[in-house]
Amino acid sequence: MIGIKELRAGDSLPEVRLNPVTRLDLIKYAGASGDFNPIHTIDAEAEQAGLPGIIAHGMWTMGNLAKLFTPYLEQGFIREYAIRFRGMVFLGDVVTLKAVLKDLQDQELTFEVAAVNHDGQDVLKGSVVFSAELPDL
């Protein structure tokens, strides 16, 4: 692993490809997050809402996406994390997590981040501002 400050604009963090989404993933996230909206776990409820099947919590995917930065948390921290939810994630979908450094100013690194499904569509898109300066605790 390299030092995050050695990155230059245009460099990417190593991509992560998630395993196909399972119902158990979403049941676990429902329990851990407290979001029990049944369109994420129960087929009949998803169909009633006009969906072809259950969909992942947007926050499950957003939570996963942040792990691209976990290896660097001894070098700094996430100061800002902004996401727009653009597409739904269904059971069996294979999601790839990406981050590209856009800008490096002093101690702040701004990344463009995305979660992309197996059809190449962005399901989440946004930015992470990583502070390479450790905070006062």
């Binding site: 947007g58 926050m59 957003m62 948390l73 921290f77 996430i78 100061r79 800002e80 994390y81 902004a82 996401i83 727009r84 939810f85 905070p135 006062d136 605790l137």
Partner: peptide, 12 residues
């Protein structure tokens, strides 16, 4: 529908 989510932190 969940449209956007934005976090800002002073520290972890």
């Amino acid at each position: 529908i969940h449209g956007e989510q934005i976090y800002t932190y002073v520290r972890p």
